[in-house]
């Protein structure tokens, strides 16, 4: 994402340190980490700090933001969702999963890959071309990121939009209105279905907790 605004706090650094340790303990070639969480839960911040930390360990990690892969253009999304009905369309199917999978495949096979990249100021979709040769890890972040196939470590941030409402306002990223609230509520409901896939949880106090798979 171009021109994104990040607010990195100590809680992100502390959680990232724990997650990086987990990554280092299980590390293998072409490792994939996914970070899921609702809007404003700190996915991008956590991704950023993890990538920076990994670099200190000599590991080259490339972030991939799932929000670059929407089916609809940023400037047309609101109208499209309204026309189709928020409760009908907001969810997993709003994204181009085949393109996401293609990028992952390019990463796994050291290929050069071209992917969409939203400029948040122009709201246009640029195309980003990157060479995955020499890239050791991929960090996928997005609401439904842990649903992606082939992920080695799945992290789920448990903060819901209710808890982050204020933070969103401070960032001024999205207008706060009834439409936005309905989208957030629908996303909140949808993401619950993939939550059980997580290996690690970042709880509402931003502590990293291991999932208990029975």
């Amino acid at each position: 994402m171009l021109e994104d605004v990040l607010l990195i706090q100590d809680k992100h650094r502390e959680a990232a340190a724990v997650i990086v340790e987990e990554i280092l303990n299980n590390k293998k070639d072409k490792y994939i980490v996914a970070i899921s969480g609702e809007s404003g839960s700190g996915k991008s911040e956590l991704t950023h700090v993890i990538a920076k930390d990994l670099r200190k360990h000599g590991i080259f990690a490339k972030p991939v933001h799932i929000d670059n892969f929407y089916n609809t253009l940023p400037l047309e999304r609101t109208k499209w969702r309204m026309d189709k009905g928020i409760e009908n369309v907001v969810g997993l199917n709003e994204y181009k999963w085949d393109e996401i999978n293609r990028v992952i495949d390019d990463f796994k096979n050291d290929r050069t890959s071209t992917m969409p990249c939203v400029d948040l100021v122009t709201e246009q979709i640029d195309q980003l071309t990157t060479n995955f040769k020499g890239i050791d890890m991929l960090i996928i972040d997005g609401l439904y990121a842990i649903n992606t196939d082939g992920v080695d470590l799945r992290v789920y941030i448990e903060l819901t939009y209710h808890e982050t409402k204020k933070a969103q306002k401070d960032r001024g990223k999205e207008p706060q209105n009834e439409y936005r609230m309905r989208v957030l509520e629908q996303e909140h409901q949808q993401v619950l279905s993939i939550k059980p896939k997580a290996d690690l949880f970042v709880n509402i106090d931003y502590q990293v907790v291991r999932a208990h798979h029975d």
Partner: peptide
């Protein structure tokens, strides 16, 4: 993050 040079195509 990687210090590598990507390419971006814009209209």
């Amino acid at each position: 993050h990687t210090d590598l040079v990507d390419e971006v195509t814009t209209d």
